[in-house]
């Protein structure tokens, strides 16, 4: 190669590098308020990659990914429930990849395959959002356990998400079945059902409804409750004493991405300590335990409340559980 040719090539390369701004399409169910912060943090660390968020609720993003199975639009999934990613994995939609520094993560947060198909980032934990004003108005004591919720005095005061449409709802149901056993779990839900005012479609709604006093107790997750308290809601967030179901916001690479290298860069960053600090702004429990700092208005004891969750069991039995649930509790208001 002549000197000239080499110089030209170098020139072209540098020009290309300056222009090469890879845009990654990232599907996510992260909370809307967090998106800009995460994007900024990552793009500061990797200015050559731009994130193009595609955000929706867990159910919708999952549906979208499955619908696009034969023609995937996403490069990376960053911030979706582990149970959803298990579903993707069984469809063969994920590219196994072992991110750098994965050994620092709590092993519970990592796919158990040799080369993991997904990694967990932070945990969201089922909790009760209790409206203290409504408790007072109705002369009720604050519940401290799941069992408390079935007491007759709470009748018509409890809202919970419908497990068929809400990831959080399914998380609750699968946790009860795991904690109380198949029979005990359904028995518990039968009794709980007597007290339910309504089942909501989304997981955060029961908590927000409780914050507004629309219901007294919302079966939801801790993050939403903490945020509502900060907004001025008369709310207490309670981890039931029996333990709480939980799920992880996780990340994975879509098998058919055209930007494998950039996707790996993103995944490496997603499990870095810098990223963990960002997750920690809203989430008390993150995948690298040493990073976790207390979150404002977030109740203590989240980590202890987390049950030993068998995600694989939950994913495999999802259809059966939902069918059983639907046949028992769907169309509640008719029963009234």
């Amino acid at each position: 190669m002549t000197l000239f040719a080499r110089a030209t090539a170098a020139l072209l390369l540098s020009a290309a590098a300056a222009a090469a701004q890879t845009e990654l399409t990232v599907y996510t169910a992260f909370e809307a308020v967090d998106l800009d912060r995460y994007k900024k943090a990552f793009e500061t660390a990797h200015p050559d990659i731009t994130i193009n968020w595609v955000r929706d609720s867990t159910g919708v993003v999952t549906a979208k990914l499955l619908a696009e199975k034969d023609n995937p639009q996403a490069d990376v999934i960053w911030g979706l429930a582990a149970t959803s990613l298990l579903l993707m994995k069984s469809e063969g939609m994920l590219a196994p990849f072992r991110p750098e520094g994965i050994e620092r993560l709590d092993p519970n947060f990592v796919d158990q395959d040799e080369t993991p198909s997904w990694v967990g980032l932070d945990a969201w934990i089922a909790a009760l959002c209790v409206n203290t004003r409504e408790l007072e108005r109705n002369n009720l004591a604050a519940p401290t356990s799941w069992e408390d919720l079935t007491k007759p005095e709470y009748a018509g005061h409890v809202a919970m998400p419908n497990p068929a449409s809400s990831g959080t709802g399914f998380l609750d149901v699968s946790a009860w079945l795991q904690m109380f056993g198949e029979e005990g779990g359904w028995n518990f839900m039968d009794r709980l059902h007597q007290n339910i005012k309504f089942y909501t479609h989304s997981g955060s709604k029961p908590c927000k409804d409780a914050a507004r006093g629309e219901v007294t107790i919302g079966v939801s997750f801790a993050f939403t409750g903490a945020k509502a308290i900060s907004d001025g809601a008369p709310l207490a967030v309670v981890f039931p004493s029996e333990g709480s179901g939980w799920d992880m916001e996780s990340a994975a690479i879509v098998a058919e991405t055209d930007f494998r290298a950039e996707a790996e860069t993103l995944l490496n960053w997603a499990v870095s300590e810098a990223a963990m600090k960002e997750y920690n702004v809203g989430y008390a429990v993150v995948a690298i335990p040493s990073v976790a700092q207390p979150v404002e208005n977030y109740p203590a004891g989240g980590l202890d409340a987390m049950i030993d969750n068998d995600f694989l069991w939950a994913a495999e039995n999802r259809e059966r559980i939902l069918k059983e649930w639907a046949s028992r509790y769907d169309g509640k208001s008719e029963a009234k």
């Binding site: 999952t62 068929a164 449409s165 005012k197 089942y199 208001s333």
Partner: peptide, 23 residues
């Protein structure tokens, strides 16, 4: 029914639930 139906199921809502909720 989506907003105020509680758990009272209606046909149109079923489509939404079957598709968006349960794929």
């Amino acid at each position: 029914p989506k907003v105020i139906g509680g758990d009272y199921n209606m046909l149109a809502l079923d489509i939404y639930k079957q598709v968006i909720g349960q794929q």
